[in-house]
């Protein structure tokens, strides 16, 4: 049944939007990544590991991971006031928790690793793209990790379970579930859901999310390979 269903933008239930991944895009940052997916444009910069200015917040046995997700005022239809709000604060917290299990933070006691995710244009799915970009930028910063983190959203639109919701599907759909995983161990590091799903639909959606994440994982690896294939 799902195979014949065409979405409003012409995609089938399991197609991602066109995705462009790039690493090493910034001059000063220790690691950086740029993502375009549909009309989404996201740039991620990493500084660190570096000495943590505030000793009060440093840990004697591990680095502190600090993550900021921020949307540009011109990234959305109605101008967004600059500065943090409740949504970006929550997303920042969740992204840092999604990334943390993959990093060997214990290698850098008393240090901090700062991740900034800047959304230049948003069209649905920015938190997942933020996670994908953050993980790529960490790899670009040569920070030791167990695995890359891959992420994508699934949801329910017109009673169909679909992959990678765009802005309209996100707003008008029946359910939205962003998922991030460590593909090698197939462990989930980030999971949110809102809307309406039955138990069976959830199982189907999660399977689709895993398939999507694994595909994106290959794109992430390819992106790093393209950048560093000549490196020693």
């Amino acid at each position: 049944m799902n195979d014949e269903f065409l979405r409003e933008d012409g995609r089938t239930y399991n197609t991602l939007r066109n995705m462009k991944l790039e690493v090493g895009v910034l001059n000063n940052a220790d690691g950086s990544a740029y993502i375009e997916c549909g009309n989404n444009k996201i740039i991620v910069g990493i500084y660190g590991p570096r000495e943590l200015y505030s000793k009060k917040h440093s840990k004697p046995d591990a680095a502190v991971l600090r993550c900021k997700y921020n949307m540009a005022p011109f990234s959305v239809t109605e101008r967004k006031r600059p500065g943090p709000d409740r949504r970006s604060t929550e997303i920042s917290k969740l992204i840092s928790e999604a990334i943390m299990p993959s990093i060997f933070l214990e290698k850098y006691p008393r240090a901090s690793i700062d991740i900034s995710i800047e959304v230049l244009e948003a069209e649905g799915g920015t938190r997942c793209l933020g996670i994908i970009g953050a993980s790529l930028a960490l790899a670009d910063a040569e920070i030791p990790m167990k695995d890359l983190i891959s992420a994508c959203a699934v949801g329910k639109v017109d009673d169909h379970i679909v992959l990678d919701l765009n802005e309209k599907e996100d707003k008008e759909g029946q359910a939205d579930m962003p998922v991030a995983i460590m593909p090698r161990t197939r462990e989930i590091t980030f999971l949110q859901m809102d809307g309406h799903l039955t138990g069976q639909e959830f199982d189907e959606a999660l399977q689709l999310a895993f398939d999507g994440c694994e595909f994106i994982y290959q794109l992430q690896q390819q992106c790093l390979y393209n950048k560093y294939k000549g490196a020693k």
């Binding site: 000063n28 950086s32 991620v44 910069g45 500084y47 900021k68 700062d114 900034s116």
Partner: peptide, 17 residues
């Protein structure tokens, strides 16, 4: 007109107003 010096631009730039 408003300018934001993003923290990704330089290690000396910090978050905030």
């Amino acid at each position: 007109t408003n300018t934001e010096l993003l923290a990704i631009a330089s290690r000396n730039f910090e978050y905030g107003p």
